[in-house]
Amino acid sequence: MKLAVAIAVLMLVFAAHTEAQEEEQTIEQRFATFQTQVKELTQDLAEKTKAALESIHQSDFATQSRSWFTEQFEKVKQKVEETFPKAS
């Protein structure tokens, strides 16, 4: 009788183990899931980076710096034109 109970218990354990293995993802499914996660991560990172760069570009410091460099370039350009006038 003990042998029959032991065999029945082993069969139940084997059945439960087999069902648990069927629920596990295959390696292909794991790679597909990983690929999706990486894609979402990179898209999120790209959006955040783009937003940060746009914020920096629109900041007061960046705007004032561009204006200052433009003014300095125009001053140098005028000095060069005054110093070396074009011969017509």
Results as ranks from 00 to 15, higher is better:
Met1Arg: 09
Leu3Val: 12
Ala4His: 10
Ala6His: 04
Ile7His: 11
Ile7Cys: 04
Ala8Leu: 09
Val9His: 06
Val9Pro: 00
Leu12Trp: 02
Val13Ile: 14
Phe14Trp: 05
Ala15Ile: 07
Ala15Glu: 10
Ala15Gln: 07
Ala16Pro: 00
Ala16Lys: 13
Ala16Gly: 15
His17Glu: 14
His17Asn: 11
Thr18Gly: 11
Ala20Tyr: 11
Ala20Trp: 00
Ala20Leu: 02
Ala20Arg: 05
Gln21His: 08
Gln21Asp: 12
Glu22Met: 08
Glu22Ser: 14
Glu23Met: 11
Glu24Thr: 04
Glu24Asn: 04
Glu24Ser: 04
Gln25Ala: 05
Ile27Tyr: 02
Ile27Glu: 15
Ile27Ser: 06
Glu28Ala: 10
Gln29Glu: 13
Gln29Met: 03
Gln29Trp: 02
Arg30Leu: 15
Arg30Gly: 01
Phe31Asp: 03
Phe31His: 08
Ala32Ser: 05
Ala32Phe: 02
Phe34Asp: 01
Gln35Gly: 12
Gln35Met: 03
Thr36Gln: 09
Thr36Arg: 11
Thr36Glu: 13
Gln37Glu: 15
Gln37Ala: 14
Val38Ile: 07
Val38Trp: 07
Lys39Val: 00
Lys39Glu: 12
Glu40Asn: 12
Glu40Thr: 08
Leu41Arg: 13
Leu41Phe: 14
Gln43Ala: 06
Asp44Ala: 11
Ala46Ser: 10
Ala46Gln: 09
Thr49Leu: 11
Thr49Asp: 12
Thr49Gly: 04
Lys50Met: 04
Ala51Ser: 10
Ala52Asp: 09
Glu54Asn: 10
Ser55Arg: 04
Ile56Leu: 14
Gln58Lys: 14
Gln58Met: 11
Gln58Gly: 06
Ser59His: 08
Asp60Gln: 14
Asp60Met: 05
Asp60His: 14
Phe61Cys: 03
Thr63Arg: 11
Thr63Cys: 02
Gln64Trp: 09
Gln64Ile: 01
Ser65Asn: 13
Arg66Ser: 08
Arg66Ala: 14
Arg66Trp: 06
Ser67Cys: 00
Ser67Trp: 01
Trp68His: 13
Trp68Glu: 07
Thr70Val: 01
Glu71Ser: 02
Glu71Asn: 08
Gln72Met: 04
Phe73Ser: 08
Glu74Phe: 07
Val76Met: 06
Val76Pro: 00
Lys77Ala: 03
Lys77Arg: 12
Gln78Phe: 01
Val80Trp: 01
Val80Ser: 02
Glu82Ile: 03
Phe84Thr: 13
Phe84Ile: 05
Pro85Phe: 09
Lys86Ser: 05
Lys86Trp: 04
Lys86Phe: 05
Ala87Phe: 09
Ala87Cys: 10
Ser88Ala: 12
Ser88Gly: 08
